[in-house]
Design a protein around this nucleic acid. Structure first.
Length: 121
DNA sequence: CTTCTGACA
DNA sequence: TGTCAGTA
């Protein structure tokens, strides 16, 4: 399902927000608390998100909102997942089955948004 | 028009 | 977290 958001090279802040259902200021705030949520910026200073960055955001969102983790708790949980992932040599999956389950709804919403992008004017 | 940083509620 | 200002 990660392929669902891997159809594009780069995503803007606006796209990531509609894709994740988060407000820009929330995303920016999280950037100050999670080392893994720091997107690269282009020459103009705009954030350039990749599919992988969006996955990280989704993971943090569910840790915080669905599993009601605390910022610090989520930060530690993320560190743990990263450690496990490294032990599994391959960059296997960073997400547990249970997490994927709670993410189903969002992933389906993502699929729709990707097929029929929000009309912008 | 969209996004950004910084400041402040 | 929410909002506003002044930019780029």
């Amino acid at each position: 399902m990660t392929e669902a958001i891997a159809k594009k090279e780069y995503y803007s802040m606006g796209e990531v927000c509609s894709l994740t259902g988060l407000q820009p200021h929330v995303l920016r705030y999280w950037e100050t608390r999670f080392a893994v949520l720091h997107p690269v910026k282009n020459r103009a200073g705009k954030r350039v998100f990749r599919a992988g960055d969006i996955e990280q955001v989704m993971l943090v969102k569910h840790l915080l909102y669905d599993q009601k983790y605390t910022i610090e708790g989520a930060r530690q949980k993320l560190s743990g997942l990263r450690a496990e992932g490294q032990l599994k040599e391959e960059r296997q999956q960073v997400m547990k089955p249970e997490m994927l389950a709670t993410m189903r709804a969002d992933l389906e919403a993502l699929r729709e948004l990707l097929i029929v992008p929000p009309a912008r004017k």
